[in-house]
């Protein structure tokens, strides 16, 4: 059930960012370059996929502004945009809070139901 889609809808979010982090390979790339900026070749060594596939993921991450490119000599390094990642965290956190406030209410309803059941059993 998603009764509060309406509130969820209020949460501003760069929509592509969501897509960017949904893919497991892209999440792995994010984890790797979070430690240090890396070239596509260096990154590709960590995956079974081809260098082309890794480049495609990097392009998506770049379009979503999660990573930025930096030219060093003949190599291009990709680095993580920490602020962007924070934005994603914040969005998920807001979404989580909306659900949590619903669930806290549900928890209270369940407590009342449990008490009612106990009272009935006693009678």
């Amino acid at each position: 059930m998603q009764p509060f889609g309406c509130i969820l809808a209020l949460v501003d979010m760069k929509r592509d960012v969501f897509q960017a982090i949904a893919d497991p390979t892209r999440r792995a790339i994010i984890a790797l370059i979070a430690v240090q900026a890396m070239t596509p070749n260096a990154l590709a060594q960590h995956f079974d996929s081809t260098r082309q596939a890794v480049s495609k993921h990097l392009r998506i991450l770049t379009e979503c502004e999660i990573v930025t490119q930096e030219q060093k000599g003949r190599e291009i390094y990709y680095r993580l945009e920490i602020d962007k990642m924070k934005e994603i965290d914040e969005w998920l956190e807001q979404y989580r809070k909306i659900w949590e406030s619903r669930f806290e209410q549900l928890g209270e309803v369940l407590e009342v139901m449990k008490n009612d059941q106990r009272t009935k059993k006693k009678k």
Partner: peptide, 21 residues
């Protein structure tokens, strides 16, 4: 524990929560 939210795929959101009942 409070609700956990994850995004298992690019068109899916998963919310998990346990209740003492």
């Amino acid at each position: 524990k409070p609700a956990e939210v994850s995004t298992p795929s690019d068109r899916e959101v998963l919310v998990k929560r346990s209740f003492d009942a």
